[in-house]
Design a protein around this nucleic acid. Sequence first.
DNA 1: AATAATTATTTCGATATCAAATTACTTTAT
DNA 2: ATAAAGTAATTTGATATCGAAATAATTATT
Lengths: 153, 153
Amino acid sequence: MDSILAQWRRERPDIDPSPMAVCGEIWRAGERLRQEVLANLVQYSLDFAGFDVLLTLRRQGKGETLSPSALAKDMMLSTSAMTNRLDRLEKRGLVLRASDPLDRRGLKIALTEEGFSLANEIVGSHVRTEENMISALTEIERDQLRSLLAKIR
Amino acid sequence: MDSILAQWRRERPDIDPSPMAVCGEIWRAGERLRQEVLANLVQYSLDFAGFDVLLTLRRQGKGETLSPSALAKDMMLSTSAMTNRLDRLEKRGLVLRASDPLDRRGLKIALTEEGFSLANEIVGSHVRTEENMISALTEIERDQLRSLLAKIR
DNA sequence: AATAATTATTTCGATATCAAATTACTTTAT
DNA sequence: ATAAAGTAATTTGATATCGAAATAATTATT
């Protein structure tokens, strides 16, 4: 990173590249986080796609359901991408599509028993992974970091 | 975010979800950064793919070249993805493929005049965008943020 | 000098995404 | 009631990615 900044200082001495250092650090911390979280998921033969859906459903509570479009909106995804994700999860027996009794256009997505218990297992290891990522930070530093990041943009 | 944490506290009182708050903030700051940077690029009909290549070449200096595999390595991409990116940039007349005089297997990728001046323009607006994202932070806070993020993982 | 191993790039096959089009149904307005 | 507009989910078409295989050229080994 320092060498990249040095290159820019040489090539464009008229530009102060220091924002690149800060933003680059945000960017790369996000990437590292992403890597570790993903590494945890592949142990369960899951990717972010399935993970998002499973945990979103799980945190609604046992037996609660969401429509495909609500899921898509919740995770800022197109509904067609959601169709695709649900296809895969349904094929694996982790979720099921039930027709909405109140609206024959709609579906209600629910976790199966297997999906529920997998989600339960994953949320535990996921939080352990995250705790591990930030274990070098004290409680105060964690709050500092959060409040600094909240000021971005 | 707070409501998501509340859901987890209700569903899994045995788990402390506070790491989610910190990691979620890192995640979302990265997303916001991504959004803004991308919004700047689309003004030039570019995406991250082309942006990465153009700026990587530009910061090597005027007339300098890199091989497709060096570019791929630099941005942690498969060489096949790089072939694709270069195809698009070459079609737009922003880069050109010259054969490596020292190795007939190899290519040297160079910016065209148009690519060079576009890269020059973009690096300016890119840094302005980034400066804007972090404009709420003092110089000291920027350093704090960098050092806190460096401790992640 | 011949052969094997390595390296550079591209092509191919598979997958995930989005946007637009489609089908089916519901709600609103006339 | 009927038509129009809106909404839910899927299908289709296009694109970007990766990994593996193919092609071509170089370097190392015997």
